[in-house]
């Protein structure tokens, strides 16, 4: 009941989906239609998981007066205010909700990762070392690609963009294909293991 039935559900639905791929019959497309229709109803409920665990973590922090609990108030307030604004004034263009998105979400999200530019610059100076022949090859290829993708490379000689294109289309292609085949097999294996009930960690819990 706790574990066996969910695993059976995954197995049966999974096998039907495997069959669906190979059987171009009306029955098979009806099955897909049915599943989609139900999935569309179930899907939106999943958001509860995310919201709940976020609220739970921060609520606990505030309750226990954990270090930096004050910031948890910031998170929860932002959560409540944004949600409320969305429900009160709607979510179309020109509403306060979109204003929050434009002036809070966008700058915060975009700046978070732009910090990495600084880290890369300092790592370029302090940590990217040609420690071995392999690392040297890597760095040389990287330098060519970096030059080849900007106009300065073109200005020095048209060979640099040409070599860049060649690197991307030949050795890079071979490398990425070799790796992608491994990844493709890995993904297939993971799907198989989930379907056959060998891999169950997604169910969570101990029993």
């Amino acid at each position: 009941m706790k574990r066996q039935i969910p695993l059976m559900i995954v197995l049966i639905l999974g096998l039907l989906f495997v069959a669906h791929v190979f059987i171009p019959n009306k029955l098979s497309s009806d099955y897909l239609d049915w599943f989609m229709k139900w999935m569309k109803v179930i899907g939106p409920f999943a958001i509860v998981l995310g919201v709940f665990s976020l609220v739970y973590v921060h609520y606990n922090k505030i309750k226990r007066k954990a270090p930096t609990w004050g910031y948890s108030i910031v998170t929860l307030t932002a959560l409540v205010v944004t949600t409320a604004v969305g429900f009160i004034w709607g979510i179309q263009e020109g509403t306060p909700y979109m204003w929050i998105f434009k002036n809070f979400n966008v700058p915060l999200g975009a700046t978070m990762f732009s910090l990495l530019a600084f880290y890369i610059a300092s790592a370029a100076y302090k940590a990217f070392r040609a420690r071995s022949i392999e690392a040297t090859v890597l760095l040389v290829a990287a330098i060519i690609v970096m030059l080849g993708r900007v106009s300065i490379g073109q200005a020095i000689t048209h060979w640099i963009p040409d070599i860049t294109e060649w690197i991307l289309n030949v050795p890079n292609l071979a490398a990425k294909r070799g790796i992608a085949l491994g990844v493709g097999l890995g993904m297939t294996a993971t799907s198989l293991k989930i379907m056959l009930g060998i891999e169950r960690s997604y169910l969570g819990g101990k029993d």
Binding site: V21, F22, N25
Partner: peptide
């Protein structure tokens, strides 16, 4: 209506 998509036979074997 077919009962099997013949284009996918190699996929079936591989799977």
């Amino acid at each position: 209506q077919n009962w099997f998509n013949n284009d996918e036979i190699i996929t079936l074997i591989a799977v």
